[in-house]
Design a protein around this nucleic acid. Structure first.
Lengths: 253, 253
DNA sequence: TTATATTTGTCCGTATGTATA
DNA sequence: CTATACATACGGACAAATATA
């Protein structure tokens, strides 16, 4: 019976998010330069016509994003280096998403390198985790169940086996951004059409190379898996590097 | 005149940060599973012996980090995928920093690939930006001034020339985390000792390869620059991949 | 469908510790 | 040292959305 909530233009849902978005815009546009002091919370509150609690929550988010710093008794200041220490897929909170090709290329770069290093440094525990994910995907294929989660875990386990926690965490980060697009492979139709089975064959090749401790084979297997996964998804990678065999890295210094 | 506030949680500086750190620990340890509902704000407030505003600010930070979601009238819930969309160098706010070797290895992986793609896809504007940074570093060497910023910009310009905005933004992110450790090269002693000059020679090699459109040469030059930069900093990379020439990527399918 | 309780979102007022002039 | 400005923290209160009976 209430009137339609159309008139709340600047109020999608969260007031603090609105304030935060406006402040972020002002900061990124340089209106508030690095190191510069923001107006007092009370000032901002009356300027935005909201309470100080709302302003404080907006500031809390921007502090978490590394855009602001607050010093008690002094004020709130813009960070010298915006967003240091934080990397977001979508630049702004409401930023546009990156095209799937770009995400895929980044995955290719980092995961191929991760597989190579996993072949060199894997521990028995790493191999165990990789094989556990592999087994769960086998189950998923047999039962026509969802194997996206296990697929994610497989790639993350390999990255973790690289021995570099940063690589492990970054692959986990990128992998999740990608997992939605990986769903078709594990849909019932995907499994019936043999997409999941093909992916499993490629997974096994990567696993074998890592267990064998062959970094070159691990690179090839990981690369082939990702390229074929791209084809299964209909993703065309711009100017596939290495296509003409120029992906050699080192001439022994 | 009041009694000492000993019974509170440890109170180094920010109360909301303390609460946020404790909550984050509980979430990441799985004590609060994905999708699970947290106790009400009022409940948490009395449990931590703080006001609700403090709890709300802590929750605001965790929401910004993608660990929590709040629904008005319902409650606060743990995100299904923790930290989706956000990558931090230091996992928690109080998390330990990653060793310089790990950061360096990730840089090596991503920047070598970026240089290769820059050689394939660079635009005239990209080349302009790269050369501008190069010129500013020349100035810095001549004047014994600080060239860290220009050095940062050089690497970021190359990554941007890769044509993949994701790579550009990620290199900018990693590069900044690293720039502090790069300072010695551009200190007055570093310049006098010729460290900066050596780095410039390597920079020029990368630039030449990119301008020439030679991806393999770009890879080699970028790799050599980063490896030598590591040696200048005294960083030893564990099991340098490609040292035995096994970094080939593709056998043309 | 209606009514009620719960919970988050928002606002106000106040007190305290800190930094700065 | 004093005074002012400010962030931090506390408590109470109501509105709005949700969940439940």
């Amino acid at each position: 019976m209430d009137a339609v909530p159309l008139l709340r233009i600047s109020r999608p849902h969260r007031l603090s998010e609105e304030v935060g978005a406006v402040l972020e815009k002002h900061i990124r546009s340089g209106e508030f330069g690095p190191g510069e002091k923001l107006p007092a919370e009370a000032r901002l509150a009356e300027q935005f016509a909201v309470s100080r609690a709302v302003v404080r929550e907006a500031i809390a988010r921007l502090k978490a994003d590394g855009l602001l710093e607050s010093r008690q008794g002094s004020g709130v200041y813009v960070a010298q280096c915006l967003g240091a220490g934080v990397f977001r897929m979508a630049a702004g909170v409401r930023g546009e998403a990156h095209p799937i090709e770009d995400i895929f290329e980044l995955r290719l770069i980092i995961e191929v390198a991760a597989a190579e290093r996993a072949a060199l440094r894997r521990t028995p525990a790493d191999v165990e985790a990789i094989e556990a994910a592999l087994a769960r995907m086998d189950e998923a294929v047999a039962l026509s169940a969802d194997g996206v989660r296990a697929d994610d875990d497989f790639h993350c386990a390999i990255a973790s086996a690289s021995g570099n926690p940063l690589i492990g965490r970054f692959v986990a980060f990128v992998s999740h951004e990608f997992s939605a697009s990986r769903a078709p492979t594990w849909s019932r139709e995907g499994i019936v059409r043999g997409l999941a089975g093909a992916a499993q064959d490629e997974h096994r090749a990567v696993h074998a190379a890592i267990v064998a401790g062959d970094p070159a084979a691990a690179r090839r297997a990981a690369r082939q898996h990702l390229l074929r996964a791209a084809r299964r998804l209909g993703v065309v990678l711009a100017a596939p590097p290495g296509a003409r065999g120029e992906d050699m890295d080192e001439e022994t210094s």
